[in-house]
């Protein structure tokens, strides 16, 4: 049984809890592949998507996950909400709460915003990405994708490549991979590397070739192009040449190594088109798995339909 009220990060989850979600996502994926993609499991439950940042795939993924399970889903786009009238996060949360929301899925540019919300509302809170802190559902779908292909996470070498400093995807992946027994390497320019990674049991590389050698999985992070304007690296061109993943570099990893990217991609910057669309890329599979994993999370967290477990 799932015990937590909220899903705020991977760091506080146990390996058992992570595996419980990954296992539950397997039958959920079957539902997505059916012709009629709807089960009554969460009928009468409401899921609110509260997104303070633009998002296509995460928001749509949560919305479809809820709908496939028959939950009522509502999207709040902050740009057309009372937030632009100056309403605070706590007040917005309380308003949604008293309307009877069961789950609030929040995406916010401020690290810790989901924690603040969770402290003040009764509804369950799912972190759909907070600042540079965590993006737990992305890590869970990455773990699911790797496990599905490789059978197990334990003992794999996973290289996370790019802007680690600003990446919530990297943080959640590092925690999840470590908990499931993978060896984690990170690579990128030193100016995009947070301090103290060594303490997390992560190997830090600045030469991408070294980081890729013998890797089972390469997870390429999105580069936010405005980082260049802040002077964190000289040019987009140099970034692509020094740290971009191309076919030649992929060949340094193990044969059959998987290439992941959380999207949206900057083709030709952090990843070359031939790698993004190549045989080793599982980037589109990740998107499908994202829906399955989010269905599993919604199902587990709402203690969904005891009798009609979709196995």
């Amino acid at each position: 049984m799932w015990k937590r009220k909220d899903l705020l990060g991977i760091k506080e989850l146990s390996a058992d809890e992570i595996n419980q979600i990954l296992d539950q996502a397997v039958p959920m994926k079957d539902i997505i592949k059916r012709d009629i993609k709807k089960v009554p499991t969460l009928r009468g439950k409401s899921v609110i998507n509260l997104f303070y940042e633009p998002s296509t795939r995460t928001r749509t993924s949560f919305e479809l996950a809820g709908k496939y399970l028959s939950a009522d889903t509502v999207n709040i786009a902050v740009s057309t909400s009372s937030v632009v009238k100056g309403e605070t996060l706590i007040d917005t949360g309380k308003t949604i709460d008293v309307m009877g929301a069961d789950v609030v899925v929040i995406r916010h540019q401020a690290s810790g915003a989901p924690h603040l919300l969770a402290k003040h509302i009764k509804a369950k809170v799912i972190n759909a990405g907070d600042g540079a802190h965590e993006h737990p559902t992305q890590a869970l779908l990455d773990l699911f994708t790797i496990k599905e292909a490789k059978g197990s996470i334990e003992g794999l070498t996973v290289t996370i490549l790019g802007d680690i400093l600003h990446s919530r995807v990297a943080r959640s992946n590092i925690w999840g991979l470590k908990k499931l027994g993978a060896k984690v390497r990170v690579a990128g320019p030193s100016t995009l590397m947070p301090p103290g990674l060594g303490d997390w049991g992560v190997e830090v590389y600045h030469r991408v070739e070294d980081a890729l050698e013998g890797a089972d999985v390469v997870n390429v992070l999105r580069l936010q192009l405005e980082r260049q304007q802040k002077g964190l690296f000289p040019t987009i061109r140099e970034y692509a040449r020094q740290w971009g993943l191309n076919s030649r570099r992929v060949s340094l990893a193990k044969p059959g190594a998987m290439v992941l990217h959380p999207g949206p991609m900057n083709r030709g910057v952090e990843i070359s088109p031939e790698v993004a669309d190549g045989l080793q890329s599982v980037i589109t599979e990740q998107v499908t798995n994202g829906v399955a994993v989010r269905m599993a999370i919604l199902y587990l967290m709402t203690g969904g339909g005891v009798s009609d477990v979709p196995r």
Partner: peptide, 8 residues
């Protein structure tokens, strides 16, 4: 390390 962990 704490700011790195908290994403602040």
């Amino acid at each position: 390390p704490m700011s790195a962990m908290l994403g602040l």
